[in-house]
Amino acid sequence: QIFVKTLTGKTITLEVEPSDTIENVKAKIQDKEGIPPDQQRLIFAGKQLEDGRTLSDYNIQKESTLHLVL
């Protein structure tokens, strides 16, 4: 699982696999929060994550925290 922290300070927990794409993660966030993926920007280690890449591409491991910017 990974954590996604929103600007409001809320933390969302997501069940993911390293092979999941960023697009996939955004879809999971939409399921939980109702935020359309095209409004979501995910930041990890100061980098904006691209939809077509996977979590493992960015070396995002379990218990990692991503930041969600709208």
Rank of each mutant, 00 (worst) to 15 (best):
G52A: 12
S64F: 08
L55S: 01
R53V: 07
E63W: 09
A45H: 13
I35L: 06
Q40S: 04
V16G: 03
I60C: 03
L7C: 15
G9P: 02
Q30N: 09
L42H: 00
T65G: 03
L49A: 02
P37I: 14
I22Q: 02
V69I: 12
Q30C: 14
E23P: 03
D31Q: 13
G34C: 07
E50A: 09
E33N: 07
L68H: 01
L7K: 09
E63G: 13
L7A: 14
Q30M: 13
A27Q: 13
G52L: 08
I60S: 01
E50I: 07
Q39A: 08
V4E: 01
T6G: 07
E15K: 07
I29V: 06
K26N: 01
L70C: 13
K26C: 02
K5I: 15
Q39Y: 09
D20L: 05
I43W: 15
F44P: 00
H67I: 13
E23M: 14
Q39D: 08
K47V: 15
L55A: 02
L49S: 00
Y58I: 03
D51C: 06
L49P: 01
K5E: 09
D51N: 11
L42C: 01
T8P: 05
N59C: 11
I12L: 11
T11S: 07
Q61V: 13
G9R: 04
D20Q: 05
Y58Q: 04
L7P: 14
T8Q: 11
T65K: 05
Q40H: 04
V69E: 12
N59P: 03
T8S: 13
S56R: 10
L68A: 02
K28R: 08
V25E: 00
Y58E: 03
S19L: 09
V4G: 01
T21D: 03
P18R: 04
F3L: 07
F44G: 03
I22N: 01
G52K: 13
G46T: 04
G34D: 05
Q1K: 13
V16F: 15
L49N: 00
Q61S: 11
Q61D: 09
E17W: 10
S19M: 10
K62A: 15
K5V: 15
D38K: 11
D51F: 04
N59F: 08
E15P: 06
V25R: 00
L66F: 04
L14H: 00
S19V: 06
I35E: 02
Q61F: 09
L42D: 00
I35V: 08
E33L: 14
P37D: 04
E17G: 08
E33Q: 07
S64G: 07
K62C: 15
L68C: 03
K62H: 15
E23V: 08
V69R: 08
G46Y: 05
I2M: 05
L66T: 02
L70V: 14
E50K: 07
E63M: 10
T8G: 12
K10S: 08
A27T: 11
A45T: 05
D57G: 04
T8N: 12
Q1W: 14
P18I: 12
I12Y: 06
I2E: 01
G34A: 05
D20A: 06
Q30L: 10
E17T: 10
N59Y: 07
E15W: 12
F3T: 07
E15F: 14
E63S: 10
I22K: 00
R53I: 06
D51M: 05
